[in-house]
Computed example of a mutant assay.
Amino acid sequence: MATMLWKSLLFPLIFALAIAPVPVPSHALSPRQSQPSITIAPTATEIQYHGGPLLTTPNTVNIYLIWYGAFSRNDQTSVTDFLASFTLSNGLVPHQPTVATWWKTIETYKDKAGNSVSRTVKLVKQIGDIYSLGKNIKRVQIANYVRNKIETKVLPLDSTGIYLVLTAKDVIVERFCMGSCGFHNSISLSHAKSRIIYAHVGNPSVQCPGFCAWPFSLPAYGPPGRALVAPNGVGSDGMVMNIATILAGAATNPFNNGYFQGDPLAPLEAVSACPGIFGEGAYPGYPGNLKVDRLSKASYNAYGVNGRKFLLPAIWDLTSSKCRVIL
């Protein structure tokens, strides 16, 4: 537990159905053309199923994306390319592993009827908002904001989707950078019996890059070392890592009675149970062995659309009770 406590000081652990961010040197590996292999990293955490529903239907988890504030084009295309990569066929990508490969571990999570979590993620609709709530926002405001967008039909009602609010680098959100890099939760609507799932992730490039974009930026206090080069930019890759963590948590623990370990109010979920682990051989302060782009020197472990490279966190493997990383 001392190791977990130490990690929690460096990497965002997810609270209130929140998501902890996902994790320095690494050595260069040449891109692999064959089917990816999987390696298992040990941890002391144990994820348990608490009997609640998961996001199992339909076959796709629909994402409704809200860009709150001013984002660079690079930030936007990095995130949308990441989300598009979930549906990318392995046969259409020249290298392995892919973002879709990473999600396959999440598919092994099943509900009490034996139904697996939906096999892919898809961006269905996105809208923008230039600071209608100001630049200092409470979490309850995010919930009410999403509810309003659905009730006014700006966004459709989808009880099996995720309404994801991304906030720009100059927006302060309650508890963001203060023990959390984002969160997911659920709310009810006045005209519907079902609950809908919403989530938040912030751009950490200015407020807390060493906390919510590690290992691409170093924490103010921590072990010595060099930050890794981000393939898409510190803010962009920080958001991608945390979006990945939140999507995994929301799909496997949407209503706080699915898969998690520990306190239901501060659960360790499918990805947050493996903080700081991205590659084989990871240990506190070291993300593990990663691929390194020969030209840019950027570190990554998964391929996406449009030639994108991403760094994605380890996922808790239910069969082995260990953290699984893609190679």
Rank of each mutant, 00 (worst) to 15 (best):
M4L: 13
L10D: 05
P12N: 11
A20V: 09
P36M: 09
T39D: 05
T39N: 04
E46N: 11
E46R: 15
Y49T: 02
G51W: 15
G51N: 08
T60K: 13
V61T: 15
V61N: 15
N62D: 09
I66D: 05
W67Q: 08
W67P: 00
D75N: 04
Q76V: 15
F82S: 04
F82L: 04
G91E: 10
L92V: 01
V93Q: 11
P94T: 07
W102M: 01
T105E: 07
Y109R: 08
K110M: 03
A113D: 11
N115M: 09
S118A: 14
T120M: 07
K122D: 08
V124P: 00
V124G: 03
K125D: 05
K125P: 02
K135S: 03
I137Y: 06
K138H: 04
N144Y: 06
N148C: 02
N148R: 12
E151Q: 14
V154I: 14
L157K: 01
G161M: 01
I162A: 01
L164V: 14
L164M: 09
V171D: 10
I172P: 00
E174P: 15
G179Y: 04
G182M: 11
H184A: 10
N185L: 03
S186I: 02
I187H: 06
S190R: 05
S194C: 05
R195W: 04
I196E: 06
N203F: 01
N203L: 05
V206C: 06
F211S: 11
A213R: 01
L218E: 08
P219W: 13
P224E: 04
N232S: 14
G233P: 15
G235W: 03
G235C: 12
A244G: 06
A248D: 11
T252F: 12
N253H: 01
N256A: 13
G262D: 02
A270K: 09
P275S: 05
I277A: 03
F278S: 03
A282Y: 05
Y283M: 01
Y283V: 08
K291Q: 09
V292K: 13
R294Y: 09
Y303V: 01
R308T: 02
W316D: 10
D317S: 14
L318K: 01
T319R: 12
K322N: 04
C323W: 11
